[in-house]
Amino acid sequence: MKIAVTSRGPEMTSDVDPRFGRAKWFVIVDTETGESEAIDNTSGVEAGSGAGVQAAARVAGSGVEYVLTGHCGPNAFRTLAAAGVKIITSVTGTVEEAVGKIKDGELSPTDAADVNGHWT
């Protein structure tokens, strides 16, 4: 299973970034092999509008099944849901710890955005 964790840095030891669309990095982790890959999201951080939409399309394109983050707005939620990606919010700690929690079955997906959009 592949998951994306929003992260402040590119490492497994980096802290989870509480923002989705404007997270600094996405760390993509394959929970079976333990392999990970970091995607730089500077374009999302600097986006004038639609950062959540852009990030959601990018993460969905990397073929993940889950997104682990702090908060997720309505546009990002709709986009991820349309792509069949499940969203888990309120995740804290490091990327490694977040991956451990989902493996242990401690986390469950949300069925709605947990914050309002910034533009609509």
């Binding site: 004038g48 639609g50 939409v53 852009q54 959601a56 399309a57 969905a60 986009t79």
Partner: peptide
């Protein structure tokens, strides 16, 4: 303006 999302199987408009 990121008003379009190109997903693996469809395009969404915002």
């Amino acid at each position: 303006f990121n008003a379009l999302a190109c997903l693996p199987k469809k395009v969404m408009v915002f």
